[in-house]
Amino acid sequence: AEAAAAALAHGTAVVAVGGDGSLGTVAQAAHAAGCPMGVIPYGTFNYFARTHGIPTEPAAAVRHVLDAHPQPVQVGGINDRVFLVNASLGVYPELLQDREAYKARFGRSRWVAFVAGCATLLRAQRRLRLHIETGATVRDVQTLTLFVGNNRLQLQQLGAEPEDTVVGTPGDGSLAALMLRPIGTLSMLGLMLRGAMGRLGEAAGVECFEFTHMVVKPRLARGRKEIVVAFDGEVARMRAPIDLRVLDQPLYLLQAPGAAGEPAAGA
C-alpha cells in the first residue's frame, strides 16, 4: 500500500513480479490507490498476463513494461477484496490448499497442479447450501463449489464459458459463475476427464451462468459467521454474506501499444 501511494505521488507505477496470486496482492493496493500497475509474470499459469498480452518470458515482460502506458482493465470484487482471475467457495479453496502442499513436495508444474486437483475432487464430499441473489433472481442451491471467473482464457481452457445473457463478456463487462452439483465418484472421474479436454461445461451436474452482481448467503453451522473463500490462489476466511461483483473502478494496467492477449480457442 505504501509503495502504491508513493508511486501515485511521484507519477510512476508499481510493478508486480509473480504468479496470479502475487499479482492479486499488489493489485489490491494499486486499485485502492488508483495507481498504475505493471506485471512481470512468474507463475504456473499466468492467466492474467497472457489474457492482457504481457509476455511470459521475464526479459520480454520487462521490455513490455518499459514501453507501456496505463490502460483500464476489469477487476472483480469479493466483499472488500479485489480479484483478477477468479474467486470461489467450497471445494476449490480446498483444491488450492492441496495444490500448494503437492507443489512443496513435488515441485511447481502444471502436471503437479492437475494431479493435486484430481486428488481433491475425488474425495470431495462437503456440500455447500447457498442462497443466491442475482438481480431479481433468487434461489437456493446445493453445490460442491461456486467458482467465479474474471478471465476468458481460463474459462476457455476449462470449456466453461457461459451463455451470453448480459452485456459484455467475462473479464470485459461481466463475470462467469460455475457451480458443481454433488455427484458420485464415477461421475466425478468423467467430469475431470471433460475438464482436462476443455469440455467441462458439457458435463452433467455443471451449471454456468453470467452475471455482474451476485450476493451469496451460505447456510453455516450455528455460531459461525465466516466461510473459507479463495481469490487468485489465496485462501482466507470472509464474513457472510459474500458479495461478488464487477467493480466500477478499473485497474490501470501498464500495456504496450498494440498488445493483444492470447487468441480465443478456435480463433
Score class of each variant (00 low, 15 high):
residue 129 R to T: 13
residue 136 A to W: 04
residue 123 R to A: 07
residue 50 R to H: 03
residue 125 Q to F: 12
residue 90 G to D: 03
residue 72 P to R: 14
residue 100 E to H: 09
residue 16 A to H: 11
residue 15 V to E: 13
residue 13 A to L: 13
residue 59 A to M: 13
residue 137 T to A: 15
residue 34 G to S: 13
residue 34 G to E: 14
residue 59 A to K: 10
residue 23 L to T: 01
residue 47 Y to P: 05
residue 92 Y to N: 00
residue 36 P to R: 04
residue 57 E to M: 07
residue 52 H to N: 14
residue 80 D to C: 07
residue 91 V to Y: 03
residue 119 A to N: 12
residue 105 R to P: 00
residue 67 D to M: 14
residue 13 A to Q: 10
residue 21 G to M: 05
residue 26 V to K: 06
residue 45 F to L: 12
residue 104 A to V: 00
residue 18 G to N: 11
residue 63 R to L: 11
residue 92 Y to I: 05
residue 137 T to I: 15
residue 25 T to D: 09
residue 40 I to K: 01
residue 41 P to Q: 12
residue 139 R to A: 11
residue 17 V to P: 07
residue 35 C to W: 12
residue 45 F to V: 07
residue 90 G to L: 00
residue 138 V to M: 11
residue 53 G to F: 08
residue 142 Q to E: 15
residue 95 L to W: 07
residue 41 P to L: 12
residue 46 N to H: 12
residue 121 L to K: 02
residue 110 R to H: 10
residue 11 G to D: 03
residue 30 A to D: 04
residue 84 L to G: 05
residue 21 G to P: 05
residue 138 V to R: 15
residue 92 Y to S: 01
residue 37 M to Y: 02
residue 135 G to N: 04
residue 13 A to Y: 10
residue 52 H to G: 09
residue 58 P to A: 13
residue 137 T to P: 00
residue 22 S to D: 05
residue 77 G to A: 11
residue 105 R to K: 14
residue 54 I to N: 01
residue 126 R to V: 09
residue 65 V to T: 12
residue 31 H to W: 08
residue 23 L to A: 08
residue 75 V to K: 07
residue 130 L to W: 10
residue 60 A to W: 03
residue 134 T to E: 15
residue 77 G to K: 02
residue 53 G to A: 06
residue 43 G to L: 06
residue 65 V to Y: 07
residue 54 I to M: 03
residue 19 G to F: 05
residue 81 R to E: 05
residue 93 P to W: 06
residue 96 L to C: 05
residue 19 G to L: 09
residue 128 L to G: 01
residue 79 N to C: 05
residue 11 G to T: 01
residue 42 Y to T: 07
residue 10 H to A: 15
residue 90 G to E: 03
residue 19 G to T: 06
residue 138 V to T: 14
residue 28 Q to K: 06
residue 79 N to F: 08
residue 141 V to F: 04
residue 79 N to Q: 07
residue 83 F to G: 04
residue 73 V to G: 07
residue 18 G to P: 08
residue 84 L to P: 00
residue 47 Y to T: 06
residue 38 G to L: 08
residue 22 S to R: 01
residue 69 H to F: 11
residue 114 F to N: 11
residue 95 L to D: 05
residue 67 D to C: 12
residue 108 R to C: 03
residue 106 F to D: 03
residue 87 A to M: 02
residue 91 V to W: 03
residue 81 R to V: 00
residue 46 N to L: 10
residue 41 P to G: 08
residue 39 V to K: 04
residue 100 E to F: 11
residue 53 G to W: 08
residue 95 L to P: 07
residue 87 A to E: 03
residue 42 Y to L: 15
residue 23 L to H: 06
residue 130 L to N: 09
residue 109 S to D: 06
residue 129 R to D: 08
residue 48 F to L: 10
residue 140 D to Y: 01
residue 72 P to N: 12
residue 86 N to E: 05
residue 99 R to P: 01
